Simulated assay, not measured.
Amino acid sequence: MPLTPVPARPALVVFDLDGTLLDTHVDLVESLNHTIAALDLEPVSYDDLTHLVGQGARVMIERACRLRGHPLESDALPPLVERFVAHYAGNMPGRTEPYPGLVAAMDRLKSQGYRLAVCTNKMESLALGLLGKLELTRYFDAITGGDSFEYRKPDARHLTGTIERAGGDITRTVMIGDSVNDIAVAKNAGAPSIAVPFGYSDVPVNTLNPDRIITHFDELTPEMVETLLREYAEKVAV
């Protein structure tokens, strides 16, 4: 008698945070400008943001100061980070909101048993605080930030560590993001990637060579995830 195939367990879908799950640009810009105002620097704009975000608050502040012609000495950074964190955390959730269709997409996936996680270079405490204020924490089996481990995206261990915390399996994981770090961490870990074009990438996301691009979360369905995982497994097996 032939054996009955064991059905694959539902996958783990891992999201980046800023520019993927949540439109945070207004609050990031306001907190960043509050921070560099302490140095009497000219404010940055949303157009600048795509060149500043992606590596957490420390790097964002350093890049903003350099952009305004004021490179920082190492001892000048900690008080500026504290100023940024205090302003950002104190004003949560501000005008940050989920991207259209996100909550419905997560409901679809959760109803089919899928696990969800967040893998962001934002400080873990800020990610947890923001998702908590927006009442989204309950959706996620793990939420990791840029300080959760000794490494961060695009290091593969940031994603694999998130997968382990979420109880997932790398062969059944998809990474969704808006920037080079997100697509690169998926490639480095050996997982398929989905890019969204509405985030903060400083280059068109198609140039990052993701495995899929979705323009709206209405496209994120269990069927699409399973198709992507199957096609990715076939591709790497060749």
Rank of each mutant, 00 (worst) to 15 (best):
R83E: 06
F84R: 07
F84N: 09
F84D: 04
F84S: 07
V85F: 09
V85N: 01
A89E: 13
A89P: 00
G90M: 06
G90S: 03
G90I: 01
N91P: 00
N91Q: 12
R95M: 12
R95E: 15
R95K: 13
R95S: 14
T96C: 13
E97K: 13
E97M: 02
E97G: 05
Y99V: 11
P100D: 15
L102C: 07
V103I: 15
V103K: 05
A104H: 08
M106G: 12
R108G: 12
R108D: 12
L109P: 10
G113V: 11
R115I: 01
L116P: 11
A117D: 07
C119R: 01
T120N: 09
N121F: 07
K122E: 07
K122P: 04
E124R: 07
S125A: 15
L128E: 09
L128W: 07
G129H: 05
L130M: 15
L131I: 14
K133V: 02
L134W: 04
E135K: 13
L136S: 08
T137M: 15
T137Q: 14
R138I: 01
Y139T: 09
F140I: 10
D141T: 03
A142Y: 03
I143C: 10
G146T: 03
G146W: 01
E150W: 00
K153V: 06
P154K: 12
P154E: 11
A156Y: 05
A156C: 05
T160G: 04
G161Y: 02
I163D: 01
I163G: 05
E164Q: 13
R165P: 02
A166E: 04
G167L: 11
G167E: 10
D169F: 07
I170M: 11
T171L: 13
R172K: 10
T173Y: 05
T173L: 12
V174K: 03
D178R: 02
D178A: 06
D178L: 03
V180C: 00
V180F: 03
V180W: 07
N181W: 02
D182E: 04
A184E: 13
V185N: 02
V185H: 04
A186Y: 03
K187P: 00
N188M: 14
A189S: 08
G190E: 05
A191S: 12
S193F: 06
A195F: 02
V196D: 05
P197N: 09
P197F: 04
G199Q: 08
Y200A: 12
Y200L: 11
Y200P: 10
D202V: 00
V205H: 01
N206I: 15
N206L: 13
N209Q: 14
R212W: 05
T215C: 13
T215A: 14
H216Q: 08
D218Q: 14
T221V: 00
P222D: 08
